[in-house]
Simulated scan of single mutants.
Amino acid sequence: MSEYGHWEKVHSFLLLGNQQGVLIDTGLGIDNIKRITDQLTSLPLKVITTHVHTDHIGNHGEFERIFVHKGDEDWLINGIQGLTIEQIRKDIRRDITLPTPETFDPDTYQPFKGKPTGLLKDGDIFDLGNRRLIIYHTPGHTPGHISVFDETRGYLFTGDLLYDETPIYAFYPSTNPVDLVNSLERIARIPNVKMVYGSHNTLGLNPIILDEAKIAVKFLRENDLAKFGTGIHKFNGFSVQF
């Protein structure tokens, strides 16, 4: 489920098994994503949060079972560190190119805050019946950022750790450049990946981008670039900003 009429071009992913489903992130919250998931499935759903940024938790309040990594739990409950409501509202109204629902008012927009149903940890398994998902803790963009590997289909959902077109952000005080590089190396080693799905821009990337991530990791380490202030580093298919 893609929100292309907004500058974020953010994606959420509904993964269905024969017993239950998982929704990876819930989008911006400009419109109600549950209206769509209700049309697509009647299976019980769990929401897996790749990380706690506004564009990924916008509709969390519509769902009963929400999971987040411990590293981002406090942000989910109390709000995102270092991000004011004024900045959030400025970002949510920016560069909208499609009509918004009458219920959307950027001046009163409130990001979700609430306690999760449970906490994710590295190596957790979600068994959907005929589909198995594995959680990888991949910090850097946020402390509790996770990636999800659909082992059954070979789909790797990388959240804001890896996508194309616009830079991967690791320049905020709440980010960690070294952790992000380590996380890129880790996902690049996952075997049998058939497709990579980042949370922004192009929907579905050839897994060759993981080979490019290995090259990027080596370059960034050898040149001591994984630290704040070194700028934007461009590689074949993606870029990173520290």
Rank of each mutant, 00 (worst) to 15 (best):
D160L: 03
T175W: 10
T54M: 12
G144Q: 01
R132L: 13
K121H: 07
I232D: 14
G231A: 10
I57K: 11
V217N: 00
D164K: 12
G129I: 00
E64Y: 02
T175L: 10
S147A: 15
D105N: 15
T37E: 02
W7Y: 14
H51T: 06
H233F: 10
K70D: 15
H200F: 12
K214T: 08
V196A: 03
D74T: 08
H11F: 02
Q241H: 14
D122V: 04
T230D: 06
N182W: 12
D127Y: 01
N130M: 03
R189N: 14
E222F: 11
I135H: 03
K194E: 14
V178C: 09
L205A: 09
Y155F: 15
P101V: 04
K218E: 08
N201D: 15
K34D: 08
N176I: 09
E8W: 14
L120P: 07
H145E: 14
G58V: 02
Q81I: 14
L28E: 09
P139F: 05
T26D: 02
I232K: 15
A213K: 02
I85T: 09
L220I: 12
V68M: 08
L184K: 01
L128F: 02
Y136A: 05
P99N: 09
K234E: 13
P111V: 14
I66M: 02
R94T: 07
R65N: 15
G144C: 11
L119K: 09
G5Y: 02
L162I: 07
V52C: 09
P167Y: 03
F67I: 07
F104Q: 05
D55S: 09
G140P: 13
I33G: 04
I57T: 13
D105S: 12
D107S: 15
I146W: 04
V10K: 13
G17M: 07
K113V: 04
I85A: 10
D150P: 06
L210S: 03
F63Q: 02
D160R: 05
K9H: 13
D74K: 13
G144D: 03
Y163T: 11
I208N: 14
H56P: 03
L128Q: 09
I66Q: 06
T175C: 13
L45N: 11
N59Y: 15
L23C: 04
D105F: 11
Q110V: 05
L133V: 00
D211S: 11
L205H: 07
H53D: 14
A216F: 06
F219R: 08
